[in-house]
């Protein structure tokens, strides 16, 4: 518990997953959390984001700032810092300043950036992703595990720079993907934070070593093995 209280966490993305991850972190005792997001709250976010309110959308408030403000109500001594902007625009050293990084993103480009910079600075990276009633969690612990890029193929790269909203609306690029359901988001965020707590409490050996897939319709989850790609640029010195 002391390790969790004294830890520094970076949460990238303040959408549905970001809301749930920050809530779980604060309630688990984490006191130093930085939240990064470039977006403002939209009405369509409200049905799956615990910290957002109608007035936030009406006032066009920053997602990161709203989460930082409201999560403090759960623990008033917690230090929550909001950074408004794209993760790609932040100095790389911001990764190094943290004990664990949580990826709560909606696009491949930002995922690859967070993956490679966390890996470079040897900071564990825990990525969550959702779509409708399914989702996945991958834990990257440098240098022992495969990274996100190891598991990607040409279909991922075709999606670069396209953004899949957690709500499917109020975004520049809309693809006809099924919006993530809050139950899916809750499950994925819970597993992300559970894995993060293992990392922070020195139990990295017990983390998911591969990719955990969740199918909420079939009531099924599977851990799929992924090999470290010998040609992956992230691992190449």
């Amino acid at each position: 518990m002391e390790a969790v209280i004294g830890s520094r966490c970076l949460v990238i993305g303040a959408g549905a997953l970001g809301n749930e991850v920050v809530k779980n972190l604060v309630l688990s005792g984490a006191k130093s959390i930085t939240i990064v997001d470039m977006d403002e709250v939209a009405i369509s976010n409200l049905n799956r984001c615990i910290f957002f309110r109608t007035e936030d959308a009406q006032a066009g408030r920053s997602k990161a700032e709203v989460i930082a403000h409201r999560a403090k109500e759960l623990n008033e001594v917690a230090k929550l810092e909001a950074t408004i902007g794209r993760i790609q625009d932040l100095p790389s050293k911001r990764f190094r300043e943290n004990d664990v990084v949580f990826g709560c993103l909606d696009n491949v480009a930002a995922r690859l950036h967070s993956n490679s910079h966390s890996y470079y600075h040897r900071v564990p990276y825990i990525d969550g992703a959702t779509m409708g009633t399914s989702g996945k969690v991958q834990v990257v612990i440098p240098p022992s595990t495969p990274c996100l890029q190891c598991a990607m193929n040409r279909t991922h790269y075709k999606l670069m720079e396209k953004r899949f909203s957690c709500t499917g609306a109020d975004v520049t690029f809309f693809e006809p993907k099924m919006a993530a359901e809050i139950t899916t988001t809750s499950v994925i965020a819970a597993v992300q934070v559970r894995e993060g707590l293992k990392v922070l409490s020195g139990k990295s050996d017990e983390c998911i070593r591969n990719i955990w897939y969740y199918n909420g319709l079939a009531n099924r989850s599977d851990v799929l093995e992924v090999d470290l790609d010998p040609e992956c640029a992230v691992h190449t010195k």
């Binding site: 279909t155 693809e175 093995e225 992924v226």
Partner: peptide, 17 residues
């Protein structure tokens, strides 16, 4: 639809290349 897909063989996720 346009989107990311992967292929599994049993418990193994196969790399694209």
């Amino acid at each position: 639809d346009a989107g990311a897909y992967v292929i599994r063989k049993g418990k193994k996720l196969l790399r694209g290349q």
